[in-house]
């Protein structure tokens, strides 16, 4: 038996860069370097571990929806060890919201064929964390999300979901949608050999017509939400800084008392 894993990844502006909005209130992707969302590296890692631990054939496909540069994110995942990549790219996708993105991803996942979808817990730009749940809803398969541990055996996926109130063990039959957290295990660095091998791995490009999606279902116009204003948060006014010369704790206590915290 073979297992087909599709890992969804996102190309995001570097979170350590100075991120801004463009004039149309979408994320400005021109002024900040982009990269594979750090939280998606954990998804790629878990897919590769499942592949390495399986007795059967496992094929790992990485899938992204995004502009031309998003190929960089796919390349990174391929150099980590994924087998092939799919890039959904279309000018009409500019400004697509989470609901629209989940439509495009779900259609592409169905077209690619899958037994297991693995996503990161959230993107590092939008940070909504809803796409895995939306994919499960659209694909009509179990949602096994926010796992800090995951394993696949005999057509069943199990994992541990660490919530605030409790830690839960989950179980579902394949096909299923999984998302993994940054606690699932550190992602590997691409090796030199991996980077060289990635250059030869296939990257397919699909557009909206390949997925039978109408342009008006996606993009800024097709979004079900609208950003009306975006204002840079004013810098915090400079505070008082003191150097501890034996009285730092006392001085801080006086400040807290003056602010009525004690």
């Amino acid at each position: 038996m073979s297992l087909r894993i599709v890992v969804t990844v996102k190309y995001v502006p570097d979170a350590t860069g100075d991120r801004h909005f463009a004039d149309d209130l979408t994320v400005d992707r021109d002024d900040v370097d982009g990269l594979l969302s750090e939280l998606d590296e954990y998804a790629v890692e878990q897919a590769l571990q499942i592949k390495e631990n399986a007795d059967d054939d496992v094929e790992v496909t990485v899938l992204t929806v995004g502009p031309e540069d998003a190929k960089d994110a796919l390349r990174k995942a391929l150099s980590m060890g994924a087998d092939k990549a799919i890039h959904v790219e279309d000018d009409d996708l500019h400004g697509t919201d989470a609901i629209g993105t989940s439509l495009v991803l779900a259609k592409a996942i169905e077209k690619a064929g899958y037994d297991l979808v693995i996503s990161g817990m959230a993107s590092t730009d939008g940070t909504m964390g809803v796409v895995p749940a939306l994919l499960a809803e659209r694909l009509g398969v179990p949602q096994v999300t926010l796992l800090s541990e995951v394993s696949v055996e005999d057509g069943t996926v199990t994992g541990r979901r660490d919530g605030d109130a409790a830690s839960e063990q989950l179980q579902a039959s394949l096909p299923a949608v999984v998302s993994v957290t940054d606690q699932s295990g550190e992602a590997r660095y691409p090796s030199f050999k991996g980077i060289m091998a990635a250059k030869k791995k296939p990257v397919e490009s699909w557009d909206l017509s390949d997925l039978d999606i109408d342009a008006d279902e996606v993009g800024l116009e097709g979004a079900w939400t609208k950003v009306e204003e975006a204002a840079e948060r004013p810098a915090r006014s400079a505070g008082t800084i003191v150097k501890d010369e034996g009285e730092g704790g006392k001085q801080l206590a006086e400040f807290l008392a003056s602010q009525k915290f004690i």
């Binding site: 505070g239 801080l252 206590a253």
Partner: peptide
């Protein structure tokens, strides 16, 4: 320190216990 309303530059192992003691006393 760019964000703070009040900052103490110092060794937390000195400052934190002193702060805790001050709060308890107050």
């Amino acid at each position: 320190f760019d964000l703070v309303d009040y900052g103490v530059v110092g060794d937390l192992f000195e400052v934190v216990p002193q702060l805790t003691e001050q709060i308890k006393a107050r």
